[in-house]
Simulated scan of single mutants.
Amino acid sequence: MADIGGRTQTLHQRILDDIEGNIVSGQWPPGHRIPFEVDLAAQYGCSRMTVNKVMTQLAKSGLIERRKKSGSFVTRPQAQSAVLEIADIEQEVRSLNLRYAFRLERRQVRSATQADLRALETKQAEDVLAVACIHFAGERPFCVEDRIINLAAVPGAAAEDFSKTPPGRWLLGEIPWSAAEHRIQATAATAEMAAMLGVAKGCPCLLIERRTWSDAGTITYVRLTYPGETHSLVARFTPASR
C-alpha cells in the first residue's frame, strides 16, 4: 500500500509539472482547452481521481479555470501594479509564474523636440534618448514601453544599448529619483500598438504615463501600454489626517 501511495504521489507531481510547464512556457496559451480528465488518466496510466486532484490544485493556483460540462481551460493571468510604486516589469511577469523576456524595438539619441520637452516638462534638455521595447510574459506580449530619457540628467544612458537590460530597471539601479507622477487612462490600440501587443486594432488598453525627477531635473518620461484585459491597478492608502 505504501508503494502504491508513493507511486500515486509521483504521478501526481509528474502530471502537475507537465501541465504547469505547458502553461508557463506559453505552449498552452490562455484559453487553451486542457485534455479531459479521462484522457489524461489514460495517458498517464493512473486513476481519474489522481488527475482530478491535480486539476483542483491548478485551479486553486489560478492557472486554469474549470467550467462545468465544458472542461478546463488555461486562464488569462491578470497582473496587478501598485499605483503609488514604480514597479519592475519583470517582477510583475514573474508574479504570474510566467517566463519573462523583453525585446528592444528602437533606440535613438536625438536633439530634444518640443514634444520631448513637453513630455519631460522641462526646458533644460538638449539631447534625449528615445527607447521602445516590448516586454513578454511567456510567449505573449505583456506591455509596450515607450520612453524618453533626459541626457542632461542621466548622461550615462547615452552609452547604454539596452539590448540586455531594460531601460526602466537600468534607471532604477543607476540614479535615485526624488519624485514621480503617474497618469492612468484607457486607450484604444492603434494599428502600430496592436501589432506590437498582438491584439486587434482598437482593443482596449491600459496606458500608464510616468515622469520621474531627481535633484538634476526630470529623469525620464515613459508610456507603458498594457492589453486592458490582462492588467489592473491597485492603490493602498490611509485616511488623510484632519
Rank of each mutant, 00 (worst) to 15 (best):
Ile34Lys: 01
Arg118Pro: 05
Val38Glu: 09
Asp146Leu: 12
Ile23Phe: 03
Cys46Asn: 10
Val93Ala: 04
Gly31Gln: 00
Pro29Met: 07
Arg99Lys: 02
Arg94Ala: 06
Asp88Leu: 10
Glu145Tyr: 06
Glu139Lys: 11
Ala87Ser: 13
Phe142Pro: 06
Glu20Phe: 04
Glu126Gly: 09
Thr75Pro: 07
Ile64Lys: 02
Asn150Asp: 12
Phe36Ile: 12
Val74Thr: 11
Lys60Gln: 14
Met49Arg: 13
Glu145Met: 15
Arg103Tyr: 00
Val51Gly: 02
Asn52Phe: 05
Gly138Met: 14
Gln57Met: 03
Glu20Leu: 05
Val128Met: 11
Val109Ala: 14
Arg99Asn: 09
Leu98Ala: 01
Val93Leu: 04
Thr75Asn: 01
Leu84Tyr: 05
Arg110Pro: 00
Ala112Glu: 07
Gln114Lys: 00
Glu65Val: 14
Leu96Pro: 06
Gly31Trp: 01
Ala115Tyr: 06
Tyr100His: 08
Ser111Gly: 13
Leu96Glu: 02
Arg33His: 04
Ile19Asp: 02
Arg33Gln: 12
Ala115Trp: 02
Glu85Lys: 02
Ser72Gln: 03
Asn150Met: 11
Gln124Lys: 07
Ala125Ile: 06
Gly156Arg: 05
Ile149His: 11
Lys60Met: 10
Glu160Arg: 13
Leu98Cys: 01
Ser61Arg: 15
Pro30Gln: 04
Arg140Tyr: 12
Tyr100Glu: 01
Ser61Ile: 05
Trp28Asp: 00
Gly138Tyr: 10
Ser47His: 03
Leu63Ile: 05
Val93His: 03
Leu98Tyr: 10
Asp146Arg: 07
Pro30His: 13
Ala112Phe: 11
Arg106Leu: 10
Gln57Pro: 00
Thr113Ala: 06
Cys133Lys: 07
Gly71Lys: 06
Glu105Ala: 14
Leu84Thr: 07
Arg140Gly: 08
Tyr100Lys: 11
Asp161Ile: 04
Asn97Trp: 08
Glu37Ala: 13
Arg33Glu: 11
Val51Asp: 01
Ile89Arg: 03
Ser72Gly: 10
His32Thr: 03
Ala137Tyr: 13
Cys46Gln: 10
Glu85Leu: 05
Leu129Thr: 12
Glu20Gln: 12
Arg76Asp: 13
Leu120Met: 12
Ala157Gly: 07
Gln27Val: 10
Asn52Gln: 00
Gly71Asn: 08
Gln27Cys: 00
Asp146Ala: 15
Gly26Ser: 04
Gly156Asp: 13
Ile23Asp: 10
Ser61Asn: 06
Ile148Thr: 15
